[in-house]
Design a protein around this nucleic acid. Structure first.
Lengths: 108, 108
DNA sequence: TCTATTTCACCGACATAGTCGGAGAAATGG
DNA sequence: CCATTTCTCCGACTATGTCGGTGAAATAGA
């Protein structure tokens, strides 16, 4: 029986939600770096995305080539209902565990 | 180069903080089960605790035998400064990523 | 005392998640 | 066409997560 999502899986899922229709590999990497300040390689992102897809937590659609040098077709990712549910469950677990703790630790 | 804490490591660290001076194997397991509703084996807890100790994120002290049947000596765990720092960093990353999202996802 | 029973700590083995470097597919500009 | 850019994905390895089970103390009660 499988338990929750790993920490990085959570971050990737959250990036998908933040980016909406513009969520593809490189943008996801950038979003996580921007928001968390920690450096991330695209490779790590794609591997995680692949696994989330295997688990049917995210789905993809292909975009059109963009009119710019190297503008290869992008592959856009979006969370499925199951993915959102898992994410919510993971975050709720943390919320429960942090409830009542000193600010800075508590996840409001 | 190693990045943050895994999800379960976060939960264990949080349980240590919640339990204060009463944090030992079984109590930690129970606390996580109580708060998150998900079932956890003691083995999983001890393995994680061992690894956190290797990484110098937690320290231990031995208690006295308690006056009850089977009241074997407990081993109490407490987070070290480095452990609290790592935990805070992980939680802050999630806070940043959830900021601005619909309630239920956002970690206040 | 000695044995059954309870409470714990920890090991061994395997499954899942995280990380990175680099290969290689498509697209355009010259 | 060929160099260059943007992007996807593979292969290999490390780190985390999980569980079943072993066995060390400790006490209750025969």
């Amino acid at each position: 029986m499988n338990h929750g999502l790993g920490e990085f899986e959570q971050l990737v899922l959250l990036a998908l939600i933040r980016l909406g229709t513009e969520a593809y590999g490189v943008a996801i990497r950038d979003e996580i770096e921007q928001q968390t300040g920690r450096s991330v390689t695209v490779g790590a992102v794609y591997t995680t995305l692949l696994r989330l897809e295997d688990k049917r937590l995210v789905a993809t659609r292909l975009g059109d080539p963009t009119p710019q040098r190297g503008g290869r077709r992008k592959k856009y990712y979006r969370p499925l209902a199951a993915g959102r549910r898992e994410l919510t469950a993971s975050l709720n677990a943390l919320r429960s565990m942090t409830r009542g703790l000193t600010p800075g630790l508590e996840l409001p």
